[in-house]
Design a protein around this nucleic acid. Structure first.
Lengths: 205, 205
DNA sequence: TGTACATCAGTGAACGCGCGTTCACTGATGTAC
DNA sequence: TGTACATCAGTGAACGCGCGTTCACTGATGTAC
């Protein structure tokens, strides 16, 4: 606890942290403002010094998550190096790695019902994060012959959906589902087969 | 309302229906036993004549959903007719169609946190439903040369993840996400590309 | 067909609980002189 | 360096609320004779 004083020090961060761990354990609607306050060793009323209320706290957690996520995706993409293909695959891996490393943030972002449009700031950072995937898809699609090239947004959407599905169904313990394979393998092979279907990976690799 | 008497007639079904519509609107944890009762025009206490409690009600909704789902998947698969490939694709379409047609059931089944292991009955029907996809995958994988054939459970998992991801991200209004494409198209093309990657569909079709 | 009675499916009042939010307050911190 | 005072970041009591659950009850239905 450290400083055991009247003043907390950095309650704001502690509340977000509490929110994240609760959201991770109990799901977005199972989370409680009072409990987050308790976990930070503080009265529920203190929360209102830093946030407008319950929703605002979750939105802040989501915002923070999108910022981390955006950076992770940008790092993984690395401006398309060493190759458009490798960079694209790296973003897929980064997606799953993020979901694993920051499950609370992931839930706040994608399962809490917080709208991306809630604030301009949130909208901006979320767009930036999700834009990386699309950028990667656009670059990669240059390698497909024009006539058989699907819209890049479409194939970004495919990869996003596949990644999200793997996270929801196999990376969490969800509905009593035993994962037959490690989620990383599942995503890796799934993306591999998909890219082969686009003619971007040689058939026998 | 029909019979406006002391006795409801079929409260049990009415409660499940109310549960489903609430769960669909508010999410699994936003659902309330009292509100479901209110929606059925009945005192909360009446619920206990038919269910053990809140959880039991949701579990019953999920059970009902799995039963419908299993049947839809089996119909779609149609014992592998007219071809293993066509039948496989049909199950993918059926998955999405089910999620669209029965959103409340879908949420109860996959987002409510109800474990498939909750009762033997639930486990049985859920296994049956999800087994169809695996059966379809096994049949289809016979058409892939042995040496480059991935485990059928793996590719069933890929298709399930892709379908689930499309539902969660693009078929619902979720996090302010505008779907750039109709979810049906997204899933259809996604599965198409994937199957091409497996060498099951000619490259130029 | 009529009556007595058991069973069934609801009521409604009550409970204890934890929630989100408000409010006047007070202790701690920072700053001006 | 010391003091006065403004500001900040918490407290704690209170509120009204809806929840899930229990209980003794009662009206409606079904059945035996």
């Amino acid at each position: 606890m450290g400083k055991r004083g009247y003043h907390h020090g950095n309650l704001r961060e502690a509340l977000v942290a509490g929110c994240l761990s609760l959201i991770e354990k109990r799901g977005p609607t199972g989370f409680t403002l009072s409990e987050a306050a308790r976990e930070a060793g503080v009265t529920p009323a203190a929360v209102y010094r830093h946030f407008e209320g319950r929703e605002d706290l979750i939105a802040d957690a989501a915002l923070q998550g999108y910022a981390i996520f955006a950076e992770a995706m940008e790092d993984a993409y690395a401006d398309g190096k060493p190759s458009d293909l490798a960079a694209f695959e790296a973003t897929g891996r980064a997606y799953l790695a993020f979901a694993n490393k920051y499950p609370g943030h992931y839930v706040a972002m994608f399962e809490s019902g917080i709208s991306i449009q809630r604030t301009p700031e949130l909208n901006k950072v979320a767009t930036r994060a999700l834009g990386v995937l699309e950028t990667a898809a656009v670059a990669l699609s240059q390698h497909i012959p024009v006539d058989k090239r699907p819209p890049p947004q479409m194939f970004a959407a495919h990869i996003w959906a596949l990644s999200h599905g793997v996270v929801e169904l196999f990376a969490r313990g969800s509905p009593g589902t035993k994962s037959p394979f490690p989620p990383e393998d599942l995503l890796e092979t799934g993306i591999g087969i998909y890219l082969r279907g686009l003619g971007l990976v040689p058939p026998d690799q």
